[in-house]
Design a protein around this nucleic acid. Sequence first.
DNA 1: CTTAGGG
DNA 2: CCCTAAG
Length: 675
Amino acid sequence: MVLERRRDYDFYGHPVQIKRRARSARRRAKFQRRVEDNQMCAFDLLATVAGKLFLQEKEHPLTSSDKSSEKDQQGFVKEERRDAGEPFKAELSNEGCHRRCDRGFVKDDSKKADKPFKAELSGEGSSDIKCLSNSQVQSESCFFKELPHSEIYGNSHVASVMANSSYPERFGAERLADGKNHNKVENLGSKVELGLSSKVELGSSGSPDRSECNLGGDVSKGKDELHKFAKAPVVTSTEMRCLDDPLDEKPPVQISSGGNAKLSGCVDNMSCSSLSEGYDNVPVVSRDDDENFLGCDNPSFETKSFRPISRIGDQSIRKTLAAKYCKVAQQSKHDTLSNSVEVVNGNLKDTYTNPGMSSLGAHQYSSLGSKESHVNLRIKSFRVPELFIEIPETATIESLKRSVMEAVTAVLGGGLRVGVILQGKKVRDDNKTLLQAGISHDNQLDALGFTLEPISPQSPTSLCAADSRHIPTADKPQLLPRYPSSAAIHQRNQSCSDVLPEHRVTSLGNLVDSDHDSAPSPVKTPVDKRLADSRALVTVPEMGMQALSLLPVPQKPKRPETVQRRIRRPFSVAEVEALVQAVEKLGTGRWRDVKLRAFDNAKHRTYVDLKDKWKTLVHTARISPQQRRGEPVPQELLDRVLTAHAFWSQHQTKQQLNKQHQQQQQQPQTCLLLQ
DNA sequence: CTTAGGG
DNA sequence: CCCTAAG
């Protein structure tokens, strides 16, 4: 008799049917999970870097004085545009079922109310914003997908948008402490203020579970008006893009409720309520496609936690970008102090700037005239060291995006160090004081820059040597990350293709142009000299959650890419509910089926995870409530756990007994035969 | 690839 | 969550 591998009756004696998923699909899903994790790591790191460098800031005197902004009580700047232009508007709305923050951007692990990351928007001048072409490497990742006005290149206004996500405590808390910072939105709520005349839409439609959130805000601008910062809720897992039609402006919308972000487009109470529950000040809206449980018919199912979660859709290009920022900063001859150091830069290839080097400029403020002067720097972005990617022409845009993501991930995750450059010179002596180095509060710090450098310098050429013949398939483009030494920074003004034509290295900048699905592609030639340096266009690549079908170039063992441990994602009650239900139905030995049944859409929950969770659930159910930790699981559920566990354990025992019986019955026969 | 268990 | 032996 053949042992039946699958039990066909559940806890309740009902027949059970489980769909079998194609192996390839499973494999792919698994791979995607890995990829996802890798991506996350990179961005976590990125965020960390940014967080560390993001010091308290103050508005530069020049800047602030020049502003004609009036703030409301919360510190929001409400301004009337002086020029023609549309008020800035950002929209973030939320809809769909379960969402959470993308991993790495909002921590939920710590029980303390996580502050949401904020979007920082600063604008200046006529506020024409536009993504430089190189930033469009990932069209979706572009905060401002497209900017209406073309004068961009002609004006010297600065417009930057930055969304800082993770490590809010660093990004936000400290800054909020600065009550004088009128340019900052103290309220983490939903208001966004900025000097942009463009309307920006965060979040897009189309995807069913897309989140959107409105950040309303008026903006004004003035030539010398520098930055207006606003902390705005940022929607992760959401596409942020600029509206195609600049004229399609709507009046600024304030979705704030009591100064807090409110989700518009909330489809289910859950998402709304969850936001309001203990997250009043958390304007973060996120969605998590992964959080959907198939087979979870419990209407009360809800996800309260805004845990960083990412998803990896294997089909469409759903982006779960961790944070997408598209920053455009332009140097104004007037505002020598206006440019700030930029941190967290996802510039994959900047043909007009110095790769690997962050834009120069830092706000410098004197603070507390006590004994010591302080230098306050605001690093808005970091440019990722130059990357080179080789990809066959036949590759899809999607694979290109993945390639870029991979490359960025490889670099960021590979280990970076920060370099300091002052007056164009690298400051090598780490032991010097800032003062000794010439960085003092009464200095102009716009000559101060930071670089991100690979920890272990490697020969760039090795990576570029790949021949297209090595490229397995169109879906597996070669990654050619390259780490230029910072020393070469000032020489890198050429496009990638100029540098390595013979290697057939495709310049991202070139490809980018074709990456415009919806917006008129502003094929701007990155030539405007004025745009040169300090215009870090910060584009944090969206987190393409789909699997990167490419693998890092093997011959280039990057730093001991310590395979980061997956982030911890505590099971929510809803998940537990789903798990329990599935196990009741399927039993304890069919985790893959459980996964398929109840967590098919939760890419980050593997069957092993479920099995482990069940294990802990059983344990939890057995210990006293006082010993339990984490989000309390309803006793009712725990009871069911024990019941189901007992049932299936018994079931298993019975099976084993049966098996033994069968064997015993067969053995005699065998013996007889042998005899 | 799945399970089952220990770590 | 990770790692891995086993099947």
